[in-house]
């Protein structure tokens, strides 16, 4: 008997024990928290990957430009040399280099195969431009080239960089919006589960009130129960989500936003916050539900 009495006074028998441990709301809360955390990890990974991609595209493309010279074969060396001269004196250009035939062949090879007779085709000459820290005046450069190298077309990549950056930025916001929706859906599910648990335990609440429990005590018992369940479920879901993201195939530099899903550096801290945030959502949702139900039962 002493063991039973000790149990009656142990911490186990405290406020958390007054709520019956079983019931479908246990599984419901655990499952929804785990599922939502799993999805949240993917939304986070998507958002972070989109952010990284946007940064990388922005950095890489903003620092480089291409000059394309289309001219008759006999004119090509002269126009190329003149273009390089102009570029060497243009502020904002750190380096300008004409691509060799083999480099140009390499660029075309994926489309035309390895046996491309480059010398027999009117392939334009490409000049790769690396931009320096100083701002490059693209409009001014175009005017100079138009006057002195009529076959040159300057491409600062802005035409296709901007929509890509906008798309990546959109994906980033989409991920953030998905996170908010996930948090809202989880709050709704926990609220439903808490409502069901409170309603199913009306008798328990009546007994607790009979022996002098305040509303804060009763609500606290349910809030702790649901918060703990949400924390446990979310921790499991986060673990599985991180594992799944880690197992996604890594295609290295060639990867896009989908194949580049994952966490890097400080980004690993974000999924660690998911269980705590899920518990916080559960805490707020259960507290609101408990107040409402206790008011109704009174």
């Amino acid at each position: 008997m002493r063991a039973d009495i000790s149990a009656a006074f142990s911490r186990e028998a405290g406020a958390d024990r007054v709520v019956p441990p079983s019931g479908f709301t246990v599984q419901l809360t655990l499952f929804s928290a785990a599922a939502m955390a799993f999805l949240a990890v993917f939304a986070l990974a998507l958002s972070l990957a989109a952010g990284r991609l946007a940064d990388r595209w922005g950095d890489e493309l903003a620092r480089s430009a291409t000059l394309r010279i289309s001219a008759p074969a006999e004119e090509m060396p002269r126009q190329t040399a003149r273009a390089l001269e102009i570029l060497s004196t243009t502020p904002g250009v750190a380096e300008a280099r004409a691509l060799s035939d083999s480099e140009q062949r390499g660029l075309l090879e994926p489309w035309f195969g390895p046996d491309l007779p480059l010398d027999q085709l009117p392939v334009p000459q490409l000049i790769e431009i690396a931009e320096g820290p100083e701002r490059l005046d693209a409009a001014g450069l175009r005017l100079r080239l138009q006057a002195e190298v009529p076959g040159a077309v300057f491409d600062d990549h802005a035409r296709w960089r901007e929509p890509l950056l906008a798309a990546a930025g959109g994906l980033r916001w989409l991920g953030a919006a998905a996170l908010l929706l996930i948090a809202g859906a989880m709050a709704a599910m926990v609220t439903l589960a808490a409502n069901a648990a409170l309603a199913a335990n009306a008798q328990v609440i009546a007994v607790l009130r009979l022996v002098g429990a305040t509303d804060a005590y009763i609500a606290g018992a349910f809030v702790r129960r649901f918060t703990l369940r949400a924390l446990m479920g979310a921790a499991a879901g986060t673990g599985l989500g991180v594992l799944a993201v880690t197992l996604m195939p890594d295609t290295g530099d060639t990867g896009g936003v989908l194949t580049g899903l994952g966490f890097e550096g400080a980004g690993w801290l974000w999924p660690l916050a998911v269980p705590s945030l899920a518990a916080l959502v559960a805490l707020v949702a259960t507290r609101a539900a408990a107040r409402r139900v206790l008011e109704d039962l009174a």
């Binding site: 008997m1 006074f9 028998a13 007054v18 441990p21 607790l208 009979l210 022996v211």
Partner: peptide, 20 residues
Amino acid sequence: CQFLDHLSVAENVALPLTVA
């Protein structure tokens, strides 16, 4: 006699103390 059926008799008897 309303009790919490998942708690033992000892725990139910001690419930007012627990709550307080």
